[in-house]
Design a protein around this nucleic acid. Structure first.
Lengths: 220, 220
DNA sequence: CCTACCGATCGGTAGG
DNA sequence: CCTACCGATCGGTAGG
């Protein structure tokens, strides 16, 4: 059966424009009128496609998160070792947000607007995959390839937040980078370097599995 | 001359409540009515103290950024070496945002709402101090104490954004940390570990100043 | 710091 | 997908 083309196109166009506008000006800062104007229909017509502003918001957010349902499993299962899996994760997250920085902006806004709700979503959908990564890190730690002081769950969490934050807000700090052509990407590249450098044991000069006495733990 | 106490108190109370509400619900998501209600006065009375909603917004943001005008110079000048200065910076930023996470939320929202304006502010006020830090990093690199691959400006920028992002959004990823008591702080602590570990040359086994051929540069 | 009030815009509905 | 319309709330003003 041939799908009706124009109606589908209109609903999709509304979703795209809403995503862009919510990301740039926030949910409360974007009226249904300006979304309707952006696609060239009346506000009341928008409400035929999405029955309320809240419904549109959820469709926008779903459209963002849905991407990971396939991508994340594929990327993580393709890689074998813990280090490779983290590389895969970083690569996927990097590509996804670089493709359209509005994704990072929107995600950050949603987290700020409804933290507990977003936490629930993240916990439910991501926990098993994060487990895969942290298991790999712990294995790497036992085998001496990964730094002993790494806190696996916190490492993954901090890394993801930092990447999203850098894409969402990087241009601001980019003012400090001088006249760099792409300050955001340069910031994220440095972030990825930091992530790798602070994960792997690099100065493995001696084959000893031991490294650095854990002297300066401050909270016992 | 004794300052009038009650009027000052009211203007201050409005500023505090506005900061909290703007941080939690955003500028567009917070009406003057709810701010007035929060301090127990009429909306029209609020507009006596701050002549417009925009004026209140600027007062809130100024209150946030003003803090650094004294703190940053003091913290950075007290420390001598580049590494110490970065430690000082991280410590100050950490304490400031941990003291009240709404500060991080507000800052992130302002960056999202008006990136170019915030970039201008940051560039003007922070550039000289960032210069101090990057000079220290470059010196450390020449002397072999700091990793050669570190991009000084990008490192500072990425670090600051990551800390703000972690305090603003950390609880969400904190759902992945299990039943940790303070997920945000744990995430930030890991971030600081990452920052240090990816800055300093740790496995300095040989006194040679050389380290790792810079092989995998991907964008020439 | 209050009462009273303003035009504009908000999200949403009725009916076709 | 449109016209016409709704009550509620928005930021802001007048005047005291």
């Amino acid at each position: 059966m041939a799908q009706k083309e124009k109606p589908m196109a209109m609903k999709e166009r509304l979703l795209v424009e809403a995503t862009r506008l919510f990301a740039r000006h926030g949910f409360e800062g974007t009226s249904l009128q300006v979304i309707a104007d952006a696609v060239g229909i009346q506000k009341a017509s928008l409400l035929y496609h999405y029955s309320s502003k809240q419904a549109l918001r959820e469709a926008v957010l779903d459209g963002l998160l849905e991407h990971w349902k396939d991508t994340l499993p594929k990327a993580l299962m393709a890689a074998t070792s813990g280090e490779n899996r983290i590389d895969s994760l970083m690569a996927e997250v990097f590509v996804f947000f670089r493709e359209d920085r509005d994704r990072a902006r929107l995600l950050m806004r949603e987290i700020l607007d409804a933290p507990e709700l977003m936490q629930e979503r993240v916990t439910i959908h991501l926990t098993p995959w994060v487990r895969l990564l942290t298991d790999g890190i712990r294995l790497g730690q036992r085998e001496g390839r990964i730094q002993a002081l790494v806190d696996p769950e916190a490492y993954i969490a901090a890394l993801c937040i930092s990447i999203v934050g850098s894409f969402a807000a990087g241009e601001v700090a980019g003012g400090l980078l001088g006249v760099s052509e792409s300050p955001v990407e340069r910031g994220v590249m440095e972030l990825l370097r930091m992530a790798k450098s602070s994960l792997l044991v690099q100065g493995a000069c001696a084959p000893s599995s031991e490294q650095e006495h854990p002297a300066e733990k401050q909270q016992e």
